[in-house]
Every structure is written in C-alpha cells, then in structure tokens.
C-alpha cells in the first residue's frame, strides 16, 4: 500500500518537537485518505532515534545511515528523501517548515519533478485529494493550494499541530541508498547561548519593542531585566522587534516579523511595541496575544486578546508579582 512519508530533521542528536507535530499530522491525514505512514530518519545516529516515530503512531520507520550523510548537506539529504519516496511509493511527503525543512523539501520536489506547498498552517482532505492552507503576503491573505502532481509535498509551520502520543509497534528498516557526492561541506554548527530557547521553537514568548528603551540607560536596563524575569518565570523565550535588534539592544536571533522569524506560540506578550504591520506579519498567528503599551491608539491592541494600557516600567513588575503569586499557589 502507498504511504505518506515524513522526512525528519535531526539536530544535535535530537528529534525536535516539530517532527513529532508532523508525525501526528501524517497519522491523521493517512486515516483520511487511506495511506500507510512512514518516517525517514537520515544521518549519523539516526538508528538511535528509530523507536520514536512509532510512539506517535507512525507504522514504518526507514533509517538511512551512510558515510555521505555523516555531515549535513542539503543536496545529499534531499537525494535521500527523493530516493526513499520512490522506493516506498510515497504519495505524500511531509516535513516541518524549519529553515532546513523548507530548503530540503524544495530540493526533493525538484528531483521528483513535483510541487511543494510551503509553510502550511492547515490541510483539508476532500474526496481523497489534499488541500493546504498557506499564509501569503506575510499572513495578510491565506491561500488554499493543491499539488496537481505526484507525490504531493508540503511543509507545516511549527505549532500547527500538537504532538499526540499514539504508540504502535515499531517496524524499523535500514536502507542502503546510492547517494550523490555532497556538494557542500558543513564545517561547524554554532549554537546560541546554551539553554537559550529559540523563539521559533517556544510555546510562550515575551517580546520587547523600542518603547522598552535602550538597555544602556538605567530605565531601559531595568525594563529588559524585568522582561527577562517574567520570561524566566513562565518559561518563555524572549523576542524583539526589528529596530531593537538593529540597534543592537538584543541579539538578531530574537528578531520577529516579516524580515525576521515567524512564530505562532500559545502566548505572545508584546511589551512596548507599536504593532507595525511588518511585526504583526511574524506573530499574528499566535494563539493568545497580550499587549502592553502606554498609547491606547497603538495598532498592537487591534491584534491583542488582552491589552493593558499602561507604562511598561510599572506593568511588568506588577505582572511578575502576580505570576509569582499564582505559581506559589500551584
């Protein structure tokens, strides 16, 4: 029987949550359009993760370990996806829309001469055909698209699905493939400060704008310290608007928006940002948005579920106190 193939991304020996989200999506879709499910794990140590897909309901797991996959290279990894898709008669190929996922799936689509629906936030199965929803124009419109060739390929934006455990017996198979010589060489991976959660992977985000003030001033220093304290208390990642990272107040990897990262966390607390359209483009799909701004006319309030009109210098400390009280009662 034909299958849905889920291509995975292994980072530092781990299958990050986005892979589990896509497993869950694949299991749901497979039921609706009557296909089996297969996960592909490629690269060094892939075998050590082979039991995980079955925990999320994936029936078959293919492990490809090859000297050419020792280090990540997009062309070689894409060739592996395409080859496994051919061998396993994949009708649908899915992957998480990380930066790497988007790149790899475009390449695999080129090899397989099919099309890719990129960065989707929903799907619909109707009469055996899949349709995908993808935000365009930085989320100002949503398009429904269909891939009119085989296999159907799509990447899903992080946090589109919640991983659901659904254990089945693991059927693991090791495949030897004939892979091309990698064209690029991965020399090193530089990671952000240890333990720092990236905004694109976070369930909760506390984010600051220019109204937080320059952290080199006493007022700004206090505000940003409070923002970090609140983030730590609730286990959130910290983000910022573009001018904040442009001015070097915060590091570039925190920049959210049209030209930065796109996030859709459970909770986004926006502190002293105006809510410019280019910023909203990166965070308006958050499930719950709290806005704090001293200007009641600030556009961010239009996007917010809860808004507090007030000075950040007073509101943040008050929030910290309230959350502490709440946590003390837990």
């Amino acid at each position: 029987m034909s299958t849905i193939l889920v291509a995975t991304e292994i980072r530092q020996g781990e299958l990050k949550s986005i892979n589990l989200e896509v497993f869950t999506a694949a299991v749901k879709i497979a039921k609706e359009i009557n296909l089996t499910t297969t996960a592909l794990l490629s690269g060094k140590n892939a075998a050590s993760l082979a039991e995980i897909p079955a925990k999320y309901g994936i029936e078959h797991t293919v492990v490809v370990e090859d000297a050419k996959l020792e280090k990540y290279s997009p062309d070689c990894y894409a060739a592996a996806i395409a080859e496994v898709a051919r061998q396993k008669d994949a009708k649908v190929i899915l992957m998480g829309a990380t930066y790497t996922g988007k790149d790899l799936m475009s390449r695999a689509a080129q090899i397989l001469d099919t099309a890719l629906a990129q960065d989707c936030t929903a799907y619909r199965a109707e009469g055996g055909a899949l349709r995908f929803t993808r935000p365009m124009y930085a989320g100002k419109v949503r398009a429904e698209v269909r891939v009119a060739s085989a296999p159907v390929m799509a990447t899903f934006r992080a946090k589109t699905f919640k991983p659901e455990e659904n254990p089945v017996a693991a059927k693991v198979e090791k495949l030897q493939l004939n892979l091309p010589e990698p064209l690029t060489v991965l020399e090193a991976i530089e990671t952000a400060a240890a333990g720092k959660l990236d905004v694109s992977e976070a369930d909760l985000i506390v984010s600051g704008g220019r109204g937080m003030k320059d952290p080199n001033t006493p007022e700004g220093k206090e505000n940003w310290a409070n923002l970090e304290k609140l983030a730590e208390l609730i286990g959130a990642a910290t983000g910022c608007s573009r001018p904040v990272s442009d001015d070097g107040w915060r590091s570039h990897d925190e920049h959210i928006g049209q030209t930065g990262k796109t996030v859709s966390p459970m909770l986004y607390i926006s502190c002293a940002m105006s809510g410019a359209i280019q910023h909203l483009a990166g965070m308006s799909s958050s499930k719950c948005i709290v806005a704090i701004n001293k200007d009641p006319e600030a556009p961010i309030f239009k996007a917010a579920d809860y808004g507090i009109v007030g000075d950040i210098a007073q509101v943040l400390p008050a929030m910290i106190e309230e959350v502490k009280k709440l946590k003390a009662r837990d």
Binding site: T114, A115, L116, A117, R131, P135, M136, G139, K140, V141, R142, A143, E144, V145, R146, V147, A148, S149, S284, S285, I289, P296, F301, K302, A303, A304, D305, Y306, G307, I308, V309, G310, D311, Q314, V315, A318, M319, E322
Partner: peptide
Amino acid sequence: EKLLLEKMEYPPAKQSGKIFATGVEAV
C-alpha cells in the same frame, strides 16, 4: 503549473480583545 492556487481568503477577523485602560490595576 503543478502548484495550483484555488482560493484566497483573508484570515478570520480577530474578535476584539479585552483592553484594560486602567494600567497596573488591570494586571
């Protein structure tokens, strides 16, 4: 073309949220 765009829609309008003008007291 193999990627067919069949329909475009605006994202659902957000219901207006609860905005508190009382500052710290709203926290």
